[in-house]
């Protein structure tokens, strides 16, 4: 490795440390995933994201190790019809929290792989930075230096 390449790596490492420190202000609590039939392709995760910092944080992406795709959705009711609307960003106020729960904001998990069973632990992550580009078909979503993760228990509500 050349000196320049080594220096660049060191800079990236330092940047990541600072990024992680900033993002570590978000904490995931009370995370659980809805148990669904073994042939399901989707489920939802519910949790509270608490912002322990003095600055507002914005969740720009979510992921799970059990789903090929994950998004945050909210329910909107119009004319007697409920619609799930994808939320590109969710703001967690300074010193505040956002609660993801059934019937409200929730984390959608598409294309479960594998379909988790009741009692399983599933990794869920929130990230203040959206991935630069979607992974190739069939490829898992990559880990991110700015994400905060927690284990969620799969259970019946």
């Amino acid at each position: 490795m050349t000196f320049v390449a080594c220096f660049k790596r060191a800079l990236v490492a330092v940047a990541l440390i600072f990024a992680q420190q900033a993002y570590a202000e978000l904490v995931i609590e009370d995370a659980w995933v809805r148990a669904v039939p073994p042939n399901s392709r989707t489920t939802a995760a519910y949790f509270t994201v608490r912002n322990t910092g003095a600055e507002e944080q914005t969740i720009a992406a979510v992921r799970s190790d059990s789903a090929r795709e994950a998004e945050i959705h909210d329910w909107v009711e119009t004319a007697g019809r409920k619609t799930m609307v994808r939320q590109d960003q969710v703001v967690v106020p300074a010193g505040g929290q956002v609660v993801l729960q059934s019937g409200g904001l929730h984390m959608m998990m598409f294309r479960l792989d594998p379909v988790p069973s009741p009692g399983d632990k599933v990794l869920i992550c929130v990230d203040t930075e959206a991935p630069a580009e979607a992974p190739a078909e069939g490829e898992p979503v990559a880990e991110s230096a700015t994400e905060v993760c927690a284990e969620a228990t799969v259970r019946n509500p």
């Binding site: 809805r34 669904v36 399901s40 989707t42 489920t43 939802a44 959705h73 019937g103 929730h106 959608m108």
Partner: peptide, 9 residues
């Protein structure tokens, strides 16, 4: 059945 929230709940 692909409904992740309200239907299974």
């Amino acid at each position: 059945t692909q409904c992740p929230d309200i239907c299974p709940a």
